[in-house]
Amino acid sequence: MRILVTGADGFAGRHLCELLRAAGDEVVEVYGPRAEGVNSDAQNFDIANEAAVRTAVENARPEGIIHLAGFSSVVRSHGNPARVFAVNALGAVNLLTAARDLCPKARVVLISSGEVYGPLPEGIRAGEREPVLPLNPYASSKVAAEIAGLQFHRNYGLHVVVARPFNPLGAGQAPTCAVPSFAAQLWAIQKRKAESVVRTGDLAVIRDFSHVRDVVAAYRLLVTKGEAGQTYNICSGTGRTIRSVLEEMMALAKVSARVEVDPARQRPTDMPRLVGVPDKLRALGWEPRYSVTDALREALGLRQA
Results as ranks from 00 to 15, higher is better:
V132C: 11
L20F: 05
F85D: 07
V205N: 05
L281F: 11
D25C: 02
R164K: 09
Y31V: 06
N44L: 08
A22Q: 11
T269S: 10
V84S: 06
K254A: 14
E58Q: 14
A23D: 15
F71M: 09
N136V: 02
R265D: 00
I242M: 15
A8S: 14
P180I: 08
N94H: 09
A69L: 10
A23S: 15
G237C: 11
E130A: 14
V109Q: 01
I234L: 09
A188I: 01
R289I: 06
Y117H: 11
H153G: 03
D9S: 13
E260M: 09
V216H: 04
D25L: 03
S140F: 05
R154H: 15
E227F: 14
N80V: 08
V109D: 00
L90W: 11
A228Q: 10
V93E: 13
R192M: 08
I189W: 04
S40H: 06
E227A: 14
E146P: 12
P168L: 10
A148K: 01
R125T: 12
L284K: 08
T293F: 07
V179M: 06
R240H: 08
A264G: 06
P268W: 14
G237K: 09
C17F: 07
R125F: 13
A251T: 13
R282C: 09
R240P: 02
Q190A: 12
A305H: 13
L150D: 03
P33W: 10
R273H: 11
P263Q: 12
E122C: 05
Q304A: 15
E130W: 11
L252V: 05
N59P: 00
V198W: 04
V292S: 02
V75Y: 14
